[in-house]
Amino acid sequence: MKVFVNDTCLDLFEGATVKDALNKYFTAVLKKEIKTSGRIADLIVSDNHGNRVMTDGSLSADDHIYVDTGI
């Protein structure tokens, strides 16, 4: 399924969570690996309504999420 992180389209497996999307975004797009899942849980992620979404949240196709990449 396709989801968007900071408006970049990513292909993810069906059933992926916010954490999976961030893993892909950081490694495939920013070429930065987040070494522990604890650091991912600390990221502030929001949806396109400006609401915060938890990193263990489920994603659906075409969801948009936004994350501050300054870690």
């Binding site: 949806d47 915060r52 938890m54 949240g57 489920s58």
Partner: peptide, 11 residues
């Protein structure tokens, strides 16, 4: 539920 969205402000 499901998306684990936190609506801090009423919407």
């Amino acid at each position: 539920g499901h998306s684990h969205t936190l609506t801090l402000e009423p919407e």
